[in-house]
Design a binder for these strands. Structure first.
Lengths: 369, 369
DNA sequence: CTGAAAGCGCTAACAG
DNA sequence: CTGTTAGCGCTTTCAG
């Protein structure tokens, strides 16, 4: 039953608890037949050791954790799979922990480090502004992966700073790195592509400005592109996710496109800061009787698998998921072994042109200035 | 730092460990200002209690676990969200645990029960055949949700039996329930709908027969429909997921449709045992130059959100996700409080007709018998 | 309201 | 190779 302990097993086998423990942990100092006998009893009894007790006692364990905020985001699926594989190959256990919306990822991390004697952590999703003091508390290496350039805020002064690798080590001796594509640049490139196709009224579906995440960076890239090409940035062409609705979701993209198109029927292109949003937007646009890309071009971001299965196939900014995942784990282990210093690693993003974008509809009456 | 313990806090506050513990656990027997003072120090120090130690000592905790096999399956997302909410409303913590492909869900459950003093478990995804002895070992109530009618196998005799509620209680005094749609019936209905549209050559994209999961049930429904309508079941119209590739995935659906269409170019409809597969199939069909539904009809299963966003919008068997989730938690709690007996609960599935299905192309030369 | 003390189940020296 | 023993960090009686 459930409250069988290692002691019961020991008694039943006529050995001491330590011998059972040795059998359980593949310890070399045990006679093979003793071990076999013990394992047999364990199997019969259905005994399962209590992990709380094990981890409490153990001084260390070869494990890292993946803390994921927004696990339904298909963009993370591949990353998780690759990272788990890589860690496994290095003889490490991976703990995959879903961080709820209302939870703070760093707090969760702290608890987990203690509980499971973690050696390293990867954050996927979530904020990219954190309290410096809280960050200081984490005493294992950690990496923010695909979260943008993480920034710290001083609780007292409220001062925000984008700490470079040097400052990060010097002042705070924290050990963390960021790996991400250059969100501002890539977004800018996406919008520039639309501009190059002749689009002038370009909308954006993004996250609210209140939450400091990649959405902000991508919005910045959007504005930059418009500005550099002499296009004005209109309030009504910017749709921000409402509170209460999941940001990176199809319904949100759907709402966004509807709202945008109602606010400005002359919009001819829309940049969605994720592919999932783009899918939602496509549906709305289609239902409003507009053709993609003949009437309206849609461009996404992330490069999830679905993008190439959707109709029309989505033009998107493709993040090199597998490479990012590999780099993340490689660097984390380097940091764990003190072989690498914290750094910001920028990965290249690729504009993948497929079927959801095309030239701006010519001669649209009101698109003339 | 990381190895601050409750004792350090006690020392720093000039109180005993038990007082700190009381502050930590909202125990009533503590003077408000003492508590406040302690909490302040805890906050400043950034102290985080070690969960291993807490759970080791605690005799019980108000928590249940959701064990999910195949967490990338979007079908589970909604279920997870609803269940977490409901458990939360009842004052319970939910532990969401991803079960890897190579892990056995019941083994994971056993470990977790001990470690976290769970009061109940929900299994999402995974096999529906389990070793009766292993099942017996779980001594908290548990529910298989949307896994089909769970079946037990006797390790010695190899005998498989679909245990009804009574037998389940009587012989084994285990406490588990199933909640699911009638997969055979629903699949049969889906295929019958295709037949009613005049389709005769109907393919299926399903899981391998080697793995005892819902795939088998849905395949059975497919065969039943063909049989009852006097259509023969052709080997070449059945595509089973290959080993090594994720079963419920778009690439798998893509391969499936290609293979099927090459094997029999006259196929006019295909039943996919999940919407994700259907999306993959649609892509392949489109790329092969066939129109949906004019040339080929596609029907899915699950009723995920994406289905109504895809082009064409997917006809599908919709599982009442929210209701299933609610029922699951409600019944689990009833079982935990001994208010409900184990049972098989069949939920109604609905055939949702959208745009991916249509009448069989008329007068196709080779479709005549 | 607070403190002292007894373990929760296990691992890891240490001594045979 | 095996047994004895001392805690891991915390909660929880039980006294005050």
């Amino acid at each position: 039953m459930s409250d069988t302990t290692i002691r019961d097993i020991a008694k039943q086998c006529g050995v001491s608890v330590s011998t059972v423990s040795r059998a359980l942990n593949n310890h070399p100092d045990i006679r093979p037949d003793t071990k076999e006998m013990i394992m047999k009893v364990i199997k019969e009894t259905g005994f399962v050791p209590n992990d709380s007790a094990r981890y409490l006692k153990r001084s260390e364990a070869n494990s890292i954790a993946l803390l994921v905020k927004g696990i339904t985001n298909p963009f993370f699926s591949t990353m998780i799979r690759v990272m788990e594989d890589m860690a496994h190959n290095r003889g490490f256990m991976t703990i995959l922990r879903h961080v709820r919306d209302e939870e703070d990822e760093v707090t969760v991390a702290q608890a987990l480090i203690k509980e499971r004697r973690l050696k390293g952590i990867v954050f996927l999703g979530g904020k990219f502004v954190h309290d410096q003091n809280v960050l200081d508390q984490l005493d294992v290496p950690f990496i923010f992966s695909t979260i943008g350039n993480v920034v710290s805020v001083d609780e007292n002064t409220g001062e925000i700073q984008e700490i470079g690798p040097e400052g990060r080590q010097g002042r705070h001796k924290i050990r963390y790195a960021n790996i991400a594509v250059d969100d501002v640049e890539a977004s800018c490139r996406a919008v520039e592509y639309l501009i190059s196709l002749g689009h002038k009224k370009i909308g954006i579906i993004t996250e609210g400005l209140d939450c400091p995440s990649v959405g902000q960076l991508r919005l910045r890239g959007y504005k930059k592109a418009l500005e550099e090409h002499g296009l004005s940035c209109e309030e009504r062409l910017i749709f921000e996710a409402r509170e209460g609705i999941e940001h990176y979701s199809m319904p949100n993209g759907y709402n966004g496109a509807r709202t945008l198109l109602q606010a400005d029927p002359d919009m001819t292109a829309v940049f969605c800061i994720s592919d999932v949003l783009a899918v939602g937007a496509c549906r709305a646009i289609t239902e409003m009787g507009r053709a993609i890309p003949a009437d309206i071009s849609v461009i996404g971001y992330d490069g999830i698998e679905l993008g190439s299965y959707y109709n029309p196939r989505l033009t998107t900014i493709q993040q090199p998921v597998e490479q990012i995942a590999e780099k993340t784990i490689a660097m984390l282990f380097d940091m764990m072994e003190n072989k690498a210093k914290p750094q910001n690693l920028i990965m290249p993003a690729e504009l993948v042109i497929r079927d959801s974008t095309g030239p701006a509809p010519a001669g649209h009456p009101s698109s003339q200035d």
